[in-house]
Amino acid sequence: DNLVIALHSYEPSHDGDLGFEKGEQLRILEQSGEWWKAQSLTTGQEGFIPFNFVAKA
């Protein structure tokens, strides 16, 4: 599955970004460039995340 774990917390800075906490698990929905579309397994919310803040779970 496309699961990743957050290496750092991220505060959203643009509409459509997904904020998350360090250690949170996310499911990657789309990989494109440096911003990936993801869904939080904690909150169920979707949005874009910086790819370098996460690692394969």
Results as ranks from 00 to 15, higher is better:
D15R: 10
G16T: 09
Q45I: 09
F53V: 05
L41Q: 04
E21D: 08
D17Y: 15
H8Y: 15
I28M: 03
A57P: 12
N52W: 15
F48D: 04
E30Y: 12
L3G: 02
G16D: 09
Q31E: 11
Q31D: 10
G33H: 05
F20G: 00
I28G: 01
R27V: 10
W36N: 01
A55Q: 11
L7G: 02
S9L: 05
F51A: 15
Q45S: 08
H8S: 09
G33E: 03
Q39K: 12
A6V: 07
E24Y: 03
L3T: 07
H14E: 08
K37E: 01
K22N: 03
L3H: 05
K37G: 01
G23I: 02
S32R: 13
D1G: 11
I28E: 00
H8N: 08
A55W: 09
P50N: 06
S13L: 15
K56F: 15
G19A: 11
A55G: 09
F53I: 07
L26A: 00
G33T: 05
W36R: 04
E11M: 13
L7K: 06
I5R: 06
S32W: 12
S32D: 12
S40Y: 02
K56P: 14
G16F: 11
W35F: 11
I5S: 04
E30C: 14
Y10S: 02
P50Y: 10
V4R: 05
L41G: 02
Q25H: 13
L26G: 00
R27A: 06
T42R: 15
G47M: 03
L18S: 02
G47A: 02
W36Q: 00
L26H: 00
L41V: 11
Q31S: 13
Q31C: 15
E21R: 14
P12H: 05
G47N: 00
G23L: 03
Q45W: 07
Q25M: 15
A38T: 01
A38I: 07
T42C: 10
W35S: 07
Q45L: 13
Q31P: 05
G23R: 02
L29Y: 05
T42S: 13
S13Q: 15
Q31F: 13
W35T: 07
K22V: 09
G44H: 07
N52P: 04
L41K: 02
E11G: 07
Q45Y: 09
W36P: 02
F20V: 05
S13I: 15
G44Q: 07
V54R: 00
I49T: 00
K22C: 09
S32A: 11
N2Q: 10
S32H: 13
S13E: 14
P12L: 04
A55D: 07
G47Y: 05
Q45H: 10
Y10T: 02
T42G: 06
F20E: 01
L3V: 12
L29K: 04
D1C: 15
Q25L: 15
D17E: 15
N2V: 12
S9T: 11
T43F: 02
E11H: 14
I49K: 00
F53L: 12
E34A: 13
F20Y: 03
S40G: 01
G33W: 04
E30I: 09
Q31V: 08
N52E: 11
T43L: 02
Q25C: 15
S13T: 14
L29Q: 03
T42K: 15
S13D: 09
D17P: 03
L7R: 05
A38K: 00
P50L: 07
G16V: 06
W36A: 09
G19I: 04
V54M: 04
S13W: 11
Q39V: 13
G47I: 03
T43R: 03
G44D: 05
E30A: 09
S32F: 13
D15A: 13
N2C: 14
G16H: 15
G23T: 02
Q25T: 15
D17C: 15
F53D: 02
E11F: 14
T42W: 13
N2G: 09
N2A: 08
I5H: 05
E46N: 07
L18R: 01
A6Q: 01
S13V: 15
E34D: 12
P12R: 07
S9E: 05
I49E: 02
E11S: 14
G47Q: 00
F53P: 02
D1N: 11
G23A: 03
L7S: 04
F51I: 09
F48E: 03
Q31L: 06
Q45P: 01
N2S: 10
D1P: 09
L18K: 03
V54K: 00
E11V: 14
E46M: 14
E30D: 12
G44S: 05
R27Q: 06
S40A: 05
F20I: 07
R27Y: 10
Q39H: 07
E30F: 11
I28L: 10
F53A: 08
Q39A: 08
L3A: 03
S32E: 12
L29I: 11
H14N: 12
W36H: 02
E21C: 13
D15L: 12
P50F: 07
E11K: 14
G33N: 04
I5V: 11
R27L: 14
I49F: 07
Q45N: 10
E34L: 14
F20S: 00
A57H: 11
S32M: 12
R27G: 00
N52L: 08
L41S: 03
K22H: 05
K56Y: 14
F51H: 13
F48V: 07
I5W: 09
T43P: 00
Q25D: 02
W35R: 14
K37S: 05
I49A: 00
N2T: 11
F51P: 14
G23M: 03
D1I: 11
L7M: 08
A55N: 06
N2H: 12
V54G: 02
V4K: 02
S13F: 11
D17G: 13
H14C: 15
K22W: 04
Q25K: 14
Q31Y: 14
Q31M: 14
V54E: 03
L18Q: 01
L3Q: 05
G47E: 01
E34R: 14
G19W: 06
F53N: 02
L18C: 05
Q45D: 09
A38N: 00
I5C: 09
Q25A: 10
D1L: 11
D15Y: 11
L29W: 04
D15Q: 12
